[in-house]
């Protein structure tokens, strides 16, 4: 892959260490693709074409294989998202337990549609399929943390607490 040679993207030294540890877990580099895409997303914010090409070069894979995998999984972001990305479960049973009310409340509070980023870059939010928190509905996940049994007051307090 030649285009990756011209890109300026590179892992930080901390990410390099994590990348080496990841490679050691698998008998071949291809198997490390999902965790390496996650490292790239954490490092670069989202998976731009350049970021995906960089991952391809690091694992010696054709970029097309990396694009295919990055677009298959919903947790890989192909465009920028907010500093805090909120995912609201609206699957069965959350749909009947207030999941859509949470989504509407976020739209009212943040003034943008799902998938879009607030002008200050602080927030984005999306509808998620089952987050395995059905007993604690309605719920959302942000920064890998679950917030459960949500009410409008709890959502407001949560938004205020996120810089």
């Amino acid at each position: 892959m030649t285009s990756s040679a011209t890109t300026e993207l590179a892992f930080s030294s901390a990410t390099e260490k994590a990348f080496a540890a990841t490679l050691a877990k698998y008998p071949n580099p291809r198997a490390a693709l999902l965790p390496t895409l996650r490292l790239a997303q954490e490092e670069f914010g989202y998976l731009s074409v350049e970021a995906m090409e960089y991952v391809a070069s690091r694992l010696d894979l054709p970029p097309s294989k990396v694009f295919q995998v990055a677009t298959f999984y919903t947790m890989f972001f192909k465009r920028p998202h907010g500093r805090h990305h909120l995912e609201v479960c609206t699957s069965v049973p959350c749909c009947m337990m207030g999941g859509y009310e949470v989504l509407r409340h976020l739209r009212d509070r943040l003034g943008v549609e799902p998938g879009d980023v607030t002008p200050d870059g602080r927030f984005s939010y999306a509808e998620a399929e089952c987050l395995a928190g059905c007993g604690h509905a309605p719920l959302l996940q942000v920064n890998s943390e679950y917030h459960e049994f949500l009410t409008p007051e709890k959502i407001d307090a949560l938004l205020d607490s996120l810089e």
Binding site: K25, Y26, R30, A31, A32, L33, L34, P35, L37, R38, K65, Q68, V69, F72, Y73, T74, M75, F76, E129, C130
Partner: peptide, 27 residues
């Protein structure tokens, strides 16, 4: 024992899709 994190795809709960995903492919 190794922990391998998925990336958001219900179908990876099907055992052969999970194996594909563990190998670094679409599930």
């Amino acid at each position: 024992i190794y922990v391998h994190r998925g990336a958001g795809a219900y179908v990876c709960g099907e055992e052969t899709a999970m194996i594909e995903s563990l190998e670094g492919k679409a599930g």
